[in-house]
Nucleic acid binder design. Structure first.
Lengths: 139, 139, 139, 139
DNA sequence: GTGGTCTAGACCACC
DNA sequence: GTGGTCTAGACCACG
């Protein structure tokens, strides 16, 4: 697992880490049960403080993405959102609205927007297939 | 001009505003000479402090994107070249990917995702029609 | 609002704070919209580090108990758990089981246990009434 | 002897064990001379490391609550006076209050709360009957 | 070795 | 003034 921090983006380092782990899970690069890198070595590698990585992991735990067992490490959890469906739907609407507004600012019309959405969904499906094959190769 | 603030993104509100104006200019959604919304109403609409909007506009002015004419408002400056379509498309991909990742963690499948995207596109179209009619009513 | 930290209990200071705010909300000593003490003065008063109080407030925010608005302060939120009912029920079962096991260790039988539960429910109802009357006195 | 570990309470596992044994002794649920469960099976049952259970027992021995006889196991020591009923009742109140506070935040009302309490009491009764029958089967 | 807590102090963003 | 982020370093708990 490779992480990449952009110190100039203005986005807090720990949130960049959170986002990258979430993306890795969504694209099956990390699957339930997989261990995350230990806090100390990762902090050294990224040249950030140990606490910054710990904060990212704590945030991921509170989001239910990972599970940490003291003295053993952090692991990807089964994806089982405990939220009510309507709440989950509302959260997704917020994300989608943001993308739609960006599309308007970028002068891309609905048809072009939908095309890109479909492309990206296909792209993620492809990545999921690839990662799953890597882990569980069919001879 | 539609603005959308994400209070939980970790990115400062004023930078989100700056980013959105720059994006709109970069894609010719806003053209040289176009006025920006005045500070007070925009601040009210976005539920942020007036100083925050003022700070965004000051930043945009220092970046040479807009110019403020005392007592008259803020306007897009000349010499802002719009980006090529491919570049704009790439900027949108980041936003869309974020929504797709969120959908995965919220356990909403591709079909549900596309359904919500279509719903929201329709919703925004409706909203735009309403706004246009308010400004330019058809008797 | 008065907080009391027990430095010898072994329970982390920040969790003691979290628990006390949660209890204050449950007994209506703090109601939706009420502000929490600011981080710095509270930290001084409790003789703990600013970050420790901040961590407690961050935990409360992630639990949905409070809402923090940068530059303005932290406020009690409307109680609207976004969790599915079954999940909420399961979480309560865990708490209740712990109390039942404690009762067994203390050699108190089911009848005595139920009696205490009813007493405490009445006690909380009474406290809620008292706090609500203090805030919204009926002449 | 029933033990219950709460992995999210913030309190170290071994101290939770110590507390539960002390409580059981204090209320005469365990009497002088009674054996404690052996370390290995208990560790397996609670899903914790053997060292953790061993540490709890070592702590209990240093507190004079139990004594370990090499090769034979751990036993409750003499001179452990059980607490008065009122004292035991007060100890339970803290646990119950915590469950009541949780119920409030989980938006489960008093009626639902009592229903779950009764369900769980029945559940534990059933479990105890089963355990007794396993040890002392009625032909 | 692992993660968790706490302190102390610096700097930033927002109102 | 408010809260948020990050660093640096100490100590503890757990396996």
């Amino acid at each position: 697992m490779i992480f990449q921090i952009n110190f100039k983006s203005g986005l807090p380092v720990y949130l960049q880490l959170v986002e990258q782990v979430r993306t890795a899970v969504a694209s099956a690069a990390l699957s339930p049960g997989d261990p995350l890198p230990s806090i100390r070595p990762l902090a050294e590698q990224l040249r950030v403080n140990r606490n910054t990585v710990a904060k990212a992991y704590a945030e991921l735990e509170s989001q239910g993405v990972i599970e940490t067992r003291a003295g053993r490490g952090c692991f990807i959890r089964e994806n089982q959102s405990p939220l009510r469906k309507q709440v989950r739907r509302d959260m997704l609407v917020a994300e989608i609205d943001q993308a739609i507004v960006a599309a308007h600012h970028l002068q891309l019309n609905n048809q072009e927007f939908l095309k890109i959405v479909e492309d990206r969904l296909t792209h993620f499906e492809e990545r999921q297939r690839t990662h799953r094959n890597e882990k569980d190769p069919q001879p």
